[in-house]
C-alpha cells in the first residue's frame, strides 16, 4: 500500500509540475526567438522590400506590439488551446502539427520496433558463448551502428537502394500520383483501416528506407544495453542460485536473467521514444520525410514564430507525458524502485 501511495504521489507531483515546465519552456522559446538575430519580415518579404510594406506586414502579424503584450497574447492563446497560424502559410499551427507529428511518430514507431528487434536479437545472440566470435561481432555491431553519422548513413542507404538499385523511393512519404489516405495522419494505419492495398503498399515502400536507416542507427543502443545487462545478470547471485537448483541454462536465461536485463532496456526505450517524438531531423531531411523535426527546422530558418512556439510546446508536452508513463511502467515492473 505504501509503495502504491508513493507511486501515486510521484505521478501526481510530475503531473502537477508539467504545466509549470511547459510554461517555462514556452516562455523560453518565446524569448529566445525574439532575442535571436533575424526578422520574420525579412524571411517573408526579403531584405529589399520598401519600409512601408515591412511596417504594414509587421502590423498585420502583430509584431509591432510591445514584447510584453505579444507575450500576453501568446500565453492567453496557449491557455485557450490556440497556437495561432503560421506566418508563412497562414495555416493554423495545430493543423500543421496534426499532419507532421503523425509522420514523425509513424517513422519513429516503426524504426523503434525494428531497432528493438534487431538490436535485442544481436545483443542476445552472443550470450551462449561470451567473448566468442558471435559476441565480438555483436559488440562491434553495437558500437559501429551507434557511432555511424546519421546523415552519412542515410545518404549511403539512399544511394544504394533508391538511386543505384532503384528498389525503393528516394524520399517522400507517399507516391506522388496517389491520394494519401485520410484520417489520423498515420498512413499505415489509415490505409489498413480503409483496406486500400495500393495505399498501404505505397506507404510501406516509402517507409522502408527511412525506418530501416533509423532502426540501424538506434539498434546499437539496444544491443549494447542488453548485452551488458544480461552478462551482469548472468553473474548475479540469484542466477547462480537458480543454476544450483538444477534448472536448465535455457530456463535460467529466459526466466531469470533476461527479464531483469530488460528492465534498463525499457528505460532506454523510453528515452529513445522521447527523443523520437521530436523527430529524427537528419533522417527526415535526407529522405524528405514531412515530419515534425523537418517542419521545425524550416520554421526556425524562416523565423516563423507561431509555428516554432507551437511545435516546441506540443513536443515538450508529449515528451513529459512519455517520460511519466515510462517511469510508471518501470516502477510497476520493478518492485525495487522507490520514490
Amino acid at each position: 500500500m505504501s509503495r502504491r501511495s508513493d507511486l501515486l504521489r510521484y505521478v501526481g507531483a510530475r503531473l502537477a509540475l508539467a504545466p509549470v515546465m511547459l510554461w517555462l519552456i514556452a516562455s523560453l522559446v518565446f524569448l529566445l526567438l525574439r532575442v535571436a538575430p533575424g526578422d520574420p519580415i525579412d524571411a517573408l518579404l526579403g531584405p529589399r522590400a520598401p519600409e512601408a510594406a515591412r511596417t504594414a506586414l509587421r502590423h498585420q502579424l502583430g509584431l509591432d506590439l510591445p514584447l510584453l503584450q505579444q507575450y500576453g497574447h501568446f500565453l492567453s492563446d496557449l491557455l485557450h488551446g490556440n497556437l495561432g497560424s503560421s506566418q508563412n502559410s497562414q495555416q493554423p499551427v495545430l493543423e500543421i502539427i496534426r499532419t507532421s507529428l503523425p509522420a514523425s511518430l509513424e517513422l519513429g514507431a516503426v524504426a523503434l520496433l525494428l531497432a528493438a528487434v534487431l538490436g535485442l536479437a544481436v545483443g542476445f545472440s552472443g550470450i551462449a558463448r561470451p567473448e566468442g566470435r558471435l559476441d565480438l561481432a555483436g559488440r562491434l555491431f553495437g558500437i559501429g551502428t551507434y557511432a555511424l553519422p546519421p546523415f552519412w548513413a542515410a545518404m549511403v542507404v539512399q544511394l544504394i537502394f533508391a538511386v543505384w538499385l532503384g528498389w525503393l523511393p528516394v524520399g517522400g512519404r507517399f507516391p506522388a500520383t496517389l491520394l494519401p489516405p485520410g484520417g489520423s495522419g498515420f498512413y499505415l494505419l489509415d490505409s489498413l483501416l480503409a483496406g486500400n492495398v495500393q495505399q498501404l503498399a505505397g506507404s510501406l515502400r516509402h517507409l522502408v528506407l527511412p525506418s530501416a536507416t533509423l532502426a540501424l542507427l538506434l539498434s546499437g543502443i539496444f544491443t549494447n544495453a542488453l548485452r551488458l545487462n544480461l552478462r551482469r545478470a548472468l553473474s548475479s547471485d540469484y542466477v547462480e542460485a537458480a543454476r544450483s537448483r538444477g534448472l536448465s541454462e535455457r530456463r535460467v536465461v529466459l526466466r531469470h536473467a533476461l527479464p531483469n536485463a530488460l528492465l534498463p532496456v525499457l528505460t532506454i526505450t523510453g528515452l529513445t521514444v522521447a527523443s523520437l517524438i521530436g523527430g529524427a531531423l537528419l533522417i527526415e531531411i535526407t529522405y524528405s520525410w514531412p515530419g515534425i523535426a523537418f517542419r521545425l527546422q524550416e520554421a526556425i530558418a524562416q523565423r516563423d514564430y507561431p509555428l516554432v512556439q507551437g511545435i516546441v510546446v506540443v513536443v515538450a508536452a508529449l515528451v513529459v507525458t512519455v517520460t511519466v508513463v515510462v517511469d510508471l511502467l518501470v516502477a510497476l515492473l520493478d518492485p525495487r524502485i522507490r520514490f
Binding site: M155, Q158, L159, A162, V163, G166, P169, V170, G171, G172, A176, T177, I285, T286, Y287, S288, F294
Partner: peptide, 23 residues
C-alpha cells in the same frame, strides 16, 4: 493527363529520383 509536383529536400534525392526514373 495531370501533373504531380513533389518536393524533395536535398540534391542527392532530386538527382537520384530522376536517374532512377521515379520522377
Amino acid at each position: 493527363s495531370g501533373i504531380s509536383l513533389v518536393t524533395l529536400s536535398n540534391s542527392t534525392a532530386l538527382f537520384g529520383a530522376l536517374r532512377s526514373g521515379e520522377v
